[in-house]
Design a protein around this nucleic acid. Structure first.
Length: 257
DNA sequence: ATGCCGTGGAAACCACGA
């Protein structure tokens, strides 16, 4: 079974690229972020005609997450991250597909830091870590995937100097991610490629993609029951080179049945 | 070294992304 995550940066603008990628990569499950679309505008029929069941949580202009599943039905567990009833941003979807729990997340960017946006990021992270701990304790097969907006280590960015003061790399951010992983989750891509420079995002400007000036910020964290089924994974890097593409590339893992 | 580009929404500019 192939599971993918892809920050599409706007459903309206990305629909042709999304459909082309789904047709070529054929993930069984795809988690999308940054729909940037109101709930009612989602192209449900188009996605269904492409062969996918879908659950989504939209929001006007910003954020927005979706889970797509080929054939197997999706059961929605929740569309809000527990811990703050005031938080109205669409950044979280938790579903089950078969016996597998899938969490699709779009963690706040947090820039500029310091400031209220960075505070929101760290608070969101704390809430997420608390909930992830509960999920981990369930001893079920769980996948936490999406755009974490976290550069975990110096090996996950093309040049440390350029992100030293960035909310994606500040010590508080990396510590929060490390705390999360320390609950027992496996960083799937890093496990498969222990030392390689693996990127999932490249800026639109400064010719970043062609210079391979990227960073690894989209992640798969696996509970032990999923980790033991992990057989492959990677980044569909060529998608980042397509016309009218997102600034992220899709990331995927393959689990044995 | 820098939102230099891309997107959406409102309104022909601004917010936001990482």
């Amino acid at each position: 079974m192939k599971i993918a995550t892809y920050n599409i940066n706007g459903m309206n603008a990305r629909l042709p690229v999304l459909l082309k990628w789904l047709g070529e990569s054929k993930p069984d499950i795809a988690c999308l972020q940054e729909l940037k679309m109101p709930q009612e505008n989602f192209p449900e029929e188009v996605i269904k005609n492409a062969g996918y069941n879908v659950v989504w949580r939209g929001q006007k202009s910003w954020n927005g997450v979706a889970v797509l599943s080929k054939e197997r039905p999706i059961t929605e567990i929740t569309r809000t991250l527990p811990g703050d009833a005031e938080d109205e941003q669409s950044r979280y979807l938790e579903v089950t597909i078969g016996d597998l729990t899938i969490v699709c997340l779009y963690l706040p960017n947090g820039n500029p830091a310091p400031g209220p946006k960075f505070d929101y990021k760290l608070k969101w992270f704390e809430r997420f870590n608390a909930h992830a701990k509960e999920l981990f304790s369930s001893d079920k097969p769980v996948v936490l995937t999406g755009d974490y907006n976290v550069i975990p280590t110096e090996n996950d960015v093309y040049k440390v100097k350029h992100v030293e003061k960035d909310a994606l790399f500040l010590p508080e951010t990396r510590e929060a991610f490390q705390k999360l992983v320390s609950q027992g989750w496996t960083d799937a891509i890093r496990k498969l490629y222990p030392d390689e420079k693996i990127y999932t995002y490249w800026d639109f400007f400064r010719n970043a993609y062609n210079r391979n000036a990227g960073m690894r910020i989209d992640h798969f964290l696996l509970s032990p029951l999923v980790d033991k089924k992990l057989v492959a994974g990677g980044v569909d890097k060529e998608v980042r080179g397509w016309e009218k593409t997102s600034d992220h590339a899709p990331v995927w893992i393959e689990l044995k049945d």
